[in-house]
Design a protein around this nucleic acid. Sequence first.
DNA 1: TGGTTCAAGGAATAGGTTTTCCTTCGTAAG
DNA 2: CTTACGAAGGAAAACCTATTCCTTGAACCA
Lengths: 341, 341
Amino acid sequence: MEPGPNLKRTTIRDVAARAGVSIGTASKALNGQGKLRAATRDRVAAAARELGFAPNVLARGLLAGRTYTVGVITTDSFGRFSIPVMLGAESALGAGQISVFMCDTRDTPERERQYLDMLLSRRVDGLIVAGRRIEPRPSIGPTLGVPVVYAMTQSMDSDEPAILPDDAGGGRLAAEHLLALGRRRFGHITGPPRFLAARMRARGFCDATAEAGMPFTANDVLYGEWSEAWGREAARLVMRTTPGVDAIFCGSDQIARGVSDTLRVIGCRVPEDIAMVGFDNWSPMVLGADPPLTSVDMCLEDIGRVAAEHLLLAIKGEPTHGPHTVPCRLVVRGSTSPETP
Amino acid sequence: MEPGPNLKRTTIRDVAARAGVSIGTASKALNGQGKLRAATRDRVAAAARELGFAPNVLARGLLAGRTYTVGVITTDSFGRFSIPVMLGAESALGAGQISVFMCDTRDTPERERQYLDMLLSRRVDGLIVAGRRIEPRPSIGPTLGVPVVYAMTQSMDSDEPAILPDDAGGGRLAAEHLLALGRRRFGHITGPPRFLAARMRARGFCDATAEAGMPFTANDVLYGEWSEAWGREAARLVMRTTPGVDAIFCGSDQIARGVSDTLRVIGCRVPEDIAMVGFDNWSPMVLGADPPLTSVDMCLEDIGRVAAEHLLLAIKGEPTHGPHTVPCRLVVRGSTSPETP
DNA sequence: TGGTTCAAGGAATAGGTTTTCCTTCGTAAG
DNA sequence: CTTACGAAGGAAAACCTATTCCTTGAACCA
C-alpha cells in the first residue's frame, strides 16, 4: 500500500519467472517474435495478464533509439487556436502510439528555449510548433537534429514545413455564400491590418465579389481591433457610410457579436435586413448569438492532424517542405438563413 | 543533415572522450558529485558545452526508477475549465523539472482506460485527474501504484485527495459585494439543479443574504441551463416576478450575457438600475460585455497549482487525503461599479 | 547408426546514465 | 625508508527490454 517511487512495478523479469522461461523468451512471446511453441506463448501471456504487466516504454525507447513521444510547443497560452490544433495532432499521433508533451511558452522566447531544451533532453522524436498568428516567426532552431513542423504559424526559413489555414479561401467562402443568397451590398469589419490573417481574409472576400461584378474593394474594408467593442463601433460606421448595406462579413466571431449588438439596438433585423457571417466558428460565441451566427470554420483540428501527418513522414525520413494550406468550411446558421436554427 | 532517428545525439561518452576522462568521472563532474579536481570539472563542463550535451532523461529515469513525468487526464475536452487547471499544474510541476503528458478522454470511459494504460506503461510518477464538474466520479483506479490527485472533480472514494473550488464561498462573495453596494432586492439565475456547483453557489448566496437579514431564499433561485438563451429568457421572468429588483447574480458569465442582452432591450440600465455579477470570470465573455461584467473567479490556476503540490507531496511519500477547497476571488468591473471600466 | 535439419528456447549484448566500490599515486608521518 | 592516508579518477553494476546469436534436443533420411 506504500505509494511513491519506492514501489516496484512488475517487470518482464517477473513475468518470465512466473511463466518459467527466460527473459528473452518472454519478450518474444509478448511481441510475437521468434520461434516459440503456442503453449509457451499462452503461458507467458497468461502470466503477463495475471501480473498486470505493461512494458516499460523508457527501456524500450532507450534501446530503439527513439521515444515515441513528440513535443508540441505553443505560443498561444493554450488558447482558442492552439487547443483544437493540439487536439487534432494528438489524435493523429495517438493512433500511432505516440504521446505528446504539451508546452505553453506564454509567448516568451526564454520559456521557449527552456522547453526546447527539456524536450531535446527527453529525446522527443519530433516537434510541432503551434501559434496564434500565421505570420512567419523566427525558426525555432535550424539544426536541432529532430524534425519540426509548424502549425498555425510558419518559420521565416520558408523551407521548413508549415500547415496553415486558407484564410483567403475562407473570405471567398463567405462572399460566395452571401452572393448566392442574393445579397449585393457588403460591409467587411475585421481586425488590425498588421495581421496577415485579416488581410488574407479581406483579399479573398474582395476577389470573390469582384469576380461576381460587385463593387466591394480593398478600400471598403474596415480594419480595427479583434474585439466586440470595435464591432459595436464599426457597425454604426457601416450603417452611416454604406446605405442599403444588406450583408456584413466579420473577421472574427467576437467582432460579429459586437456588430449584432448594435444592429439590434438600432432596430435592424438579422438576417432579413442584414445577413451576417463571422469567422472562427467559436462555439460559445456563435451559438450564444441571437440568431446563431453563420461562420467560417478554419478546421483547426484538421490543421493539427495534417501537421502530425507531416511530422510522422519526417520521422520516417521523408520530410516535406514549405507551407501547406488546409481549406476552411462554412457553417450556415440563422444569421444568414432564417430556416436554419 | 540527415534528419530522423538515425541521427545520433551526443552522449556523455562523447563528452568524456573529449575531456579525456572516463564516463563515470564525466557524470560526477556534471552533477557535482564525488571528489574531482576543479580543473577536471571545468574541462568536462567545457566539453559538454561545446558538444551541446544534454543528458538523456530516459536513461536517467530508468536508473532512478522514476521518470520525472506526470499525467494529467481531463474529461473536459481541453475546455474552459481544465485548461487553466492544467496550466497551473504544469507551472508548479515544471519548476520541479517534471514534464506533463496531457490526455483528453473526451469524456469516454474507454479512452480513459486507454490513456491510463499508456501513462502507466510510460511509468509516470503521478496522476492528476481533472474534470468539468465537481460531482464525485468513479475512482480512476484504487490501486494503481501511483499517487493520484483529483482537480475540479472528486472521487467517489472520498479518501482520495481532491482540490475543488469553493463554490459556496463564491456565491457568498457575490452577495456580500452586492449588499455592500446597498442593493437589497436580488435575483439569482443559474444552471441546472443537478449540478452540484449550481446548488453550492446558490446556497452560499442565500446564506449570505440571510445573514444580512434579506429575504432571498432557495425558493427564489431560478434554475435552468448554462446558456445565453436561458439568461435572456430568465431575465424577463425575474423582471415580471420580482418588482424592484436591483441586483442579479448569475451562475455563469454566459447566462449573464443573456441577461444583459434582455435588460438592454427592455431599457434597464446596468449598473444604475440593476447591478450584475457573473461567475467564471471568463475573459472573452466578461470583457466583451457592455458594460464589462463583474464576476467571481474560481482561480482555476491556483487549483491546478495546489493539485500539483499535493501530488508532489504524495510522490515524496507524504500523501494527503480527502477534499480540499481553494477560495474564489471577486473581480469588480463596470456591471456593479460605474467608475470601474 | 550417423549425420543433417529444424524447432524451441536460453545467453548475452546494447542502449545512456548514475553510483558504488576499487585502484593508483603522491605525500606526510613515523 | 616504510607505512598510512587522502585525493583523484577508473571500472563495473544496475535499471529494463529487444534482438542476435548460440545451444540443445528431436526427428528425419540415407
